[in-house]
Design a protein around this nucleic acid. Structure first.
Lengths: 243, 243
DNA sequence: CGAGAGTTTGAATCGGGTCAAAGAGGGTGG
DNA sequence: CCACCCTCTTTGACCCGATTCAAACTCTCG
């Protein structure tokens, strides 16, 4: 009888485990171990993982790299609605609707397929735990998107930035992607601008203001929050309470 | 054998019917007729239908009046994340998560309870059709919220206003709440400001600009789109494709 | 008829955008 | 190992959309 210990799972499995609020059954851990062994698919930077209006997409989990859900407007402006980090799920069929936005790779991205995350249209799917994970992931993303409405609607540039950095730190921490307060964040200032609804220039100035005040360290794609309290005071970020 | 004809349903039932993409079974129509007969609950203006962080809420359907999902920031600023009109559902348990926002009545609101819209945590609920309706409503609201991220992040005041008016016209039309191009829209300019992330003053100026250009008529809580094409050109609104 | 809520207007101000151009890396190929 | 190029970051100057403050106006309803 092969007991699958948590520490036999690779970083991918660890991240999936971290999402679960309750301890997992042996059977579920085995399933995750199976998924971990699946072939990776590689997406080059700027390629599309999912197109606007697409239907019947098999969900994939991001193993490494960053992507985003975005909408492009007629004149070239674009708005990123959601950043997708390692461990995030792409193309969770939002129940019965065509993809309202497309998903683009911001860096090189590696994924595995996870058909078991597809919620059956009516009734139960194969694994209870997978249904629950899909459920939790969807709820979490919903809450984050609502928060970004508040961020965009009622916060200043500085506050928005604080909000985003705290959000990302929170998301990456619980996946074990922050070591010694330092997180890999391979995002250009242009990407951040498209998340926060600001211009690149203003994103730059805001980041520098934070650096000068010794609130953050952010260079070479690595972020460190030096003064979390000060950031939190501005951000009004509330972590999604899911589970 | 009591055949329930569509036209035996009141305005409430009609609105529910309108949400369904497929023709409904007799059995389902009967269920709706039953719901229609349930007692109404009345909420006075400004009261809360749902509090931030609440759990285990029985979904209610708005029979008349308007409400909104909103978040209040520390210093009194507030952002409305979603407007809720007659026929909308309040408190669809976003799967397994605490309510991230509170819901407030913008006018006097009348509701009925709809426990059958509560999606069972795992597996099927009592009525297939109700599950489907809950599903569709949730997907639709998701898409609208994503659109409002784009609206807030990358559109000017005029474009945001156009986007909102087109969205509301679309939502109200399909519920039969627009007669002769005219819709009841009992929203103060302050409410609109809190939806669009603008100041009341600027909302006022924007509305006047639209009126002066003969693009809309909006007075005494009634809206009429006079030049839909011109509005659509600015709004870039894409109706949710659900079903 | 008065009072309070909502709308309208003007003037001054400011946050953030735009434009333009100069640095800084970090790959690549000779 | 260096030169080159491309992308990303940084800086300055100017501008504009939107906010703020303040006050007048207009409903509507008790």
């Amino acid at each position: 009888m092969s007991l699958i210990k948590t520490d036999t799972l690779g970083p991918f499995g660890q991240r999936i485990l971290a999402l679960s609020p309750a301890p997992m059954k042996e059977e579920d851990k085995r399933l995750i171990a199976t998924m971990e062994r699946r072939p990776r698919r590689t997406w080059r930077q700027h390629s599309r993982l999912l197109h606007e209006g697409a239907r019947h997409f098999i969900p994939v989990i991001i193993v490494s790299g960053w992507a985003c859900q975005l909408r492009e407007l007629g004149d070239g402006r674009r708005q990123i609605v959601e950043l997708l980090a390692p461990g995030d799920i792409v193309g969770l069929p939002r129940r019965r609707c065509a993809a309202p936005l497309s998903v683009a790779a911001l860096t090189m991205v590696r994924t595995i397929e996870a058909p078991e995350l597809r919620v059956a249209v009516l009734g139960a799917s194969n694994s209870e735990m997978m249904t629950m994970l899909a459920d939790i992931a969807a709820a979490e993303s919903d809450v984050l998107i609502m928060q970004s409405v508040v961020r965009l609607g009622r916060q200043t540039a500085y506050d928005r930035m604080a909000h985003l950095l705290i959000e990302l730190d929170w998301r990456l921490s619980r996946r074990g992607l922050v070591q010694g307060g330092m997180a890999a964040l391979p995002l250009t200032q242009e990407v951040i601008a498209d998340v926060l609804g600001l211009s690149v220039v203003h994103v730059n100035r805001t980041l520098q203001e934070m650096r000068r005040a010794d609130v953050i360290e952010f260079a070479q794609g690595h972020l460190k929050l030096l003064d979390r309290a000060s950031l939190e005071a501005r951000a009004e970020f509330q972590p999604p309470q899911v589970g």
